[in-house]
Design a protein around this nucleic acid. Sequence first.
DNA 1: CGAAAATTTGACATGACTCAACTGGAGTGG
DNA 2: CCACTCCAGTTGAGTCATGTCAAATTTTCG
Lengths: 200, 200
Amino acid sequence: MSIKNPYKNFIAHIQRHVDLTEDDIDKILSRSHHKTYLKGQYIGQEGEIARTQTFILEGSARTFYLDSKGNEHIFAFGIDDWWVGDITSFTSQTPAEFNVQCLDKCHVVQITYENMEALYEEVPKMERYFRIIVGKAYGSVAKRIVRNHALSAKERYLNFMERYPNIVQRVPQYMIASYLGVTKEFLSSLRKQITQEQKS
Amino acid sequence: MSIKNPYKNFIAHIQRHVDLTEDDIDKILSRSHHKTYLKGQYIGQEGEIARTQTFILEGSARTFYLDSKGNEHIFAFGIDDWWVGDITSFTSQTPAEFNVQCLDKCHVVQITYENMEALYEEVPKMERYFRIIVGKAYGSVAKRIVRNHALSAKERYLNFMERYPNIVQRVPQYMIASYLGVTKEFLSSLRKQITQEQKS
DNA sequence: CGAAAATTTGACATGACTCAACTGGAGTGG
DNA sequence: CCACTCCAGTTGAGTCATGTCAAATTTTCG
């Protein structure tokens, strides 16, 4: 990522969905700010109101839920060019149910709630942009629900490795287990099975 | 539902999220059409491109996925005042992965892809409306994923009964089992457990 | 009433979890 | 450079939740 123009990938991502004029871009940038988080830092936390939506320029993060027994359940990973944040909390400005934590150093672009609302007025195309990307996100989560029911843990793991090879390399196995909804021990035994099958 | 004004609940639902002028309403209605489906009819089918988005005025429907072994997996139910349809297929006009089938007679309002695109130009507030409701839908599906991992089948069933008592009454148990991701036999044994617990 | 659909039952199988111990790096500090 | 710790990953034994299959029962509805 160029230090000169850290927003390049950010604007490019929006351009991929809607056409922006130079003026639109200026307005968007004037409502955005850049920030760097360190490994382990929280972008957002359960119980707090999500003040910003966050676009990851570089780095990785996880969104997870803490159940009543204190167990973590990873809902999603976010890497370069993804939006992260508790959307329900942000949109309705209510306490979040999800935690968003950086897995390594993250360069991000953020837009606060107030700026976002203003931006929707100034650049209505942003409504369209978010409608489209949230629609895509919804579609992929919908498929994930039925896949979780249709496939075994092993199939889900193989599927995940195929779809997100870059994530598999960057995050520890126990987090992938959490994302898939299995224990780290069970995932470990699945991995053993898989390597043994490959040998034969 | 009044026969005179079948669109009343439809417009009311939009009004709940954005302010509409009389002119907006006219434009929306001129892009919408009313339709009645019979029990068992498909609103949309796997492999076909979703030509419309469908708002249920009255009736109920299910959205399900057919896996490689031919098993059905219900992703969602839709009842009065809900939108149904494969959003990915509709938005990108690609073949659908989900089937949408009416569980009883359904009165619906539909908007075709072409009309929807035109409507976004004529009434930009509709971008906002869909951004908001898709965002809500995404949030609830996200929570469902982690709940599926955090809770046992019994807890999920009790949870479902509490949240959607009207659905539990209207759809057969084996569909609820499919929605929850368990077999009908296992759900049956859970129900037995629950009634026995209540007695004691 | 009779047939089809939905639900229940029970015996058995298995995928996935729990718990506790062990292995093997990757720091860290003396 | 070794000893120590910490953390991720692995192993294995025992258990539990849930699935499978086949049959019986109940409900629905033409």
